[in-house]
Design a protein around this nucleic acid. Structure first.
Length: 678
RNA sequence: GGCCCCGUAGCUCAAUUGGAUAGAGCACCUGGUUCGUACCCGGCCGAUGAAGGUCCAAUCCCUUCCGGGGUCACCA
């Protein structure tokens, strides 16, 4: 071994020398486990070794040399399993680095694959990446794994960890590797290497013990570093994400730096599960889905119905205020209409099947656009009439495949707060700005401060069928981008994600379990105005085609309600709460006073429920509290005499006695301001 | 739709894994009680998702369907 020493810059500025053979992980872990998490993003700066020498130097991986040659200043992913044996200065960054957790998880995936191959040697390996919440590995095997197998795999993983096998990176010429894969009949690896590596290159593998897999790394130094993990579940997954490819068996797991983190993760999941809108929907009696009626079809119960009423009132009033025109269109329309719109062709498999009536066929509407278009088309339009903004709470029905339904968030029948804006090309930017303003006001009002904005554009590389001219697209995409920039909204661009009929802006929210759901959307459409030959007469007296913008802010009322439930964990702000005030008369002789209080609150426009059951006061309080009622008013002889109520505020407990008039005044104020405070 | 798992009362869960009359809490109805800030007392009602099959015997095993959960794919 060489006698070189390694100097390491510590986060506090100190320099420490460490023995050769030390890994970045060792150094970081030695200082603090927390720092181990950040070691992966580290500055690896060769002090006196050039790239060429580095690759020849003892113990240097070609990877480290490559990084050194590429850019020695930028933070790099460091292979934690690579011992430092050259004269190297490693600067550890004292910041949280999620990449480090991914390294542990990816290593855990290899440990799992090692276990699987030991238990089921005939298994072929797919890939096994880390994910945001853990890791998975895809396997191909003639027979399926069982839940019992998962327990055995986890037990075997513990053995692999106990053996503390070193992770080592090895290289092999691509063509030789391919030969081996083909000899083994390993279609996945053959396919993968052929597709993702260059001919004549060296491909990288990682080995621990007898286990070897095609892998780019990086990994922790040895299997013993994978300390806290859990095998979770089993699912089918298509090879390379394509339905037409063979199906693999995907085993999910998760791993953390410590058992404590792992436990915290499961505690967090349990807490999140308590906010699940499907559970709360049942507990709070907000909505149901009934087997006899069909999957993906929502029943709004009275408690949910009143929340919906408040949501709709807000939206409708706001639409009118912002210059939208309210319209209503039929739920079923003749098939001919859907042929003209094109839905009967491209979208047919997502629609409910046609039904025969007299001599014509009818179809349930999957979208509201054609209806609004017919209204536009019903009379000639001048440029003076534009923009025309038609808004409707439109009930649409779509055939979603059986595996896709999810509570209120993905359903077969739902209500869009839909609007279509017909305008001139010049009006586009102002209209889109107005839509974004509206969306922002909506999100703020309903208590959402965090969301993601995505711009979906056409990918010219991909080609494909797009309607509209190059100029149309350039103009529309430019307008959307421009507007987002002008509004100062941070957004991600997704080339190739545009609809075939135009680019769009989507607003997405993350639910409690980390799933992403689309809410607001603003979309251009070059398709329908052309298909329906929409026109307006311009200043020049010529006929022009208007631009059409689809826009929905809640997206779907059902989905938005689901997200709202989870966001507030069922504890709605006063203005949205199904029951705003619960009344608890202490005994039967206070029922008359209860009537009086109820009448006064109702006169103030508040939603009140009085509990005159033959139950103990404690029980009544408990029941209202379980229903997450914002205010519970308790009263007996004392309150009745003083014309007051004893207020119990949600989350704050007993607030003592307050004059009734004062309480009513406060509630009115909170409701009017749509406050989230109580 | 594919793969895996699940379906017991209105809700949450039991039933020594094929054994006899399927239990409990909550809810509901009913009676007692009239109470000072989150679980009073007694009684009543009520179920093996559906249809077939295997077996002396099925909540339990098999088949199909319906529905749910997870996941992949899909999501104009």
């Amino acid at each position: 071994m060489s006698m070189l020493t390694i100097s390491v810059h510590l986060p506090d500025g100190a320099i420490r020398e460490v023995p050769t053979g030390t890994t970045p992980f060792d150094i970081a872990n030695d200082i603090s486990p927390r720092l181990a998490a950040s070691a992966i993003v580290a500055r690896l700066t060769p002090v006196s070794v050039t790239a060429g020498q580095a690759s020849a130097a003892e113990g240097w991986s070609a990877e480290a040399a490559m990084y050194a040659a590429e850019d020695s200043a930028a933070p790099r992913l460091v292979d934690l399993s690579t011992p430092l044996t050259a004269d190297t200065r490693l600067e550890l960054l004292n910041e949280k680095a999620p990449e480090a957790l991914r390294v542990v998880r990816h290593s855990a995936a290899h440990v799992m694959a090692t276990a699987v191959l030991e238990l089921f040697p005939e298994t072929k390996l797919g890939h096994g990446p880390a994910t945001d919440a853990g890791f998975f590995y895809d396997f191909y095997r003639p027979t399926n794994f069982t839940p019992e197998d998962l327990a055995a795999i986890e037990a075997k993983m513990k053995e692999v960890v106990a053996r503390d096998e070193k992770f080592a990176r090895i290289y092999e010429p691509r063509e030789r590797a391919l030969e081996e894969f083909e000899r083994d009949g390993d279609f996945m690896k053959t396919h993968f290497v052929t597709k993702f590596t260059e001919p004549g290159s060296e491909v990288s593998f990682y080995r621990n013990g007898h286990f070897v897999d095609f892998c780019r790394g990086p990994h922790v130094p040895s299997t013993g570093r994978v300390k806290a993990f859990k095998v979770l579940s089993l699912a089918g997954a298509y090879w390379l994400g394509d339905e037409k490819n063979p199906q693999l068996q995907r085993i999910y797991g998760t791993a953390f730096f410590s058992q404590k983190d792992l436990d915290a993760h499961f505690t967090h999941l349990e807490e999140a599960a308590k906010r699940d809108h499907r559970l709360l929907g049942k507990q709070l009696d907000l909505f149901s889905i009934q087997e006899i009626a069909g999957a993906g079809l929502i029943f709004w119960h009275p408690k949910g119905g009143i929340v919906r009423k408040v949501m709709e009132d807000w939206m409708r009033d706001e639409c009118v205020r912002r210059g939208y025109l309210l319209v209503y269109t039929p739920h079923v329309m003749r098939r001919d209409l859907w042929v003209v719109s094109g839905h009967d062709g491209v979208y047919s498999s997502n629609m409910f099947p046609p039904m025969k009536l007299d001599d014509a066929e009818y179809r349930l509407k999957p979208m509201n656009c054609p209806g609004h278009i017919l209204i536009y088309k019903n009379s000639p339009k001048s440029y003076r009439d534009l923009p025309q903004r038609y808004a409707e709470f439109g009930n649409v029905y779509r055939y979603e495949r059986s595996g896709t339904m999810h509570g209120l968030l993905r359903v077969r029948g739902f209500t869009q707060d839909d609007a279509h804006i017909f305008c001139t090309p010049k009006q586009i930017e102002d209209e889109v700005i107005a839509c974004l303003d509206f969306a922002e006001a909506m999100l703020k009002t309903f208590g959402f401060n965090e969301y993601r904005v995505e711009l979906s554009t056409r990918d010219p590389q991909k080609g494909g069928d797009f309607l509209g001219t190059e100029a149309d697209w350039a103009h529309a995409e430019g307008a959307l981008k421009n507007v987002l920039t002008r509004r100062g909204l941070a957004f991600d661009t997704f080339p190739g994600e545009a609809a075939f009929y135009g680019p769009k802006i989507d607003v997405k929210l993350v639910d409690v379990l980390g799933r992403l759901w689309q809410l607001s959307t603003v979309q251009f459409d070059f398709n329908l105005p052309a298909r329906f030959e929409l026109e307006y007469v311009g200043e020049d007296g010529e006929r022009h085609q208007p631009v059409m913008v689809h826009r929905a802010l809640f997206g779907s009322i059902e989905r938005f309600f689901g997200v709202l439930i989870e966001h507030y964990a069922g504890a709605f702000p006063l203005w949205l709460a199904p029951v705003q005030v619960g009344l608890v008369p202490i005994s039967e002789r206070h029922h008359a006073y209860a009537k009086k209080v109820e009448a006064e609150l109702k006169a103030a426009g508040l939603r009140v429920e009085s509990d005159d059951r033959n139950e103990k006061m404690n029980g009544k309080i408990r029941d209202f509290a379980n229903q997450k009622v914002p205010y519970i008013l308790v009263f007996g002889d004392k309150e009745e005499a003083a014309n007051s109520v004893s207020v119990r505020t949600r989350g704050k407990g007993d607030q003592g006695s307050v004059p009734l008039a004062e309480f009513v005044g406060k509630c009115k104020e909170l409701v009017a301001s749509q406050s989230t405070d109580l």
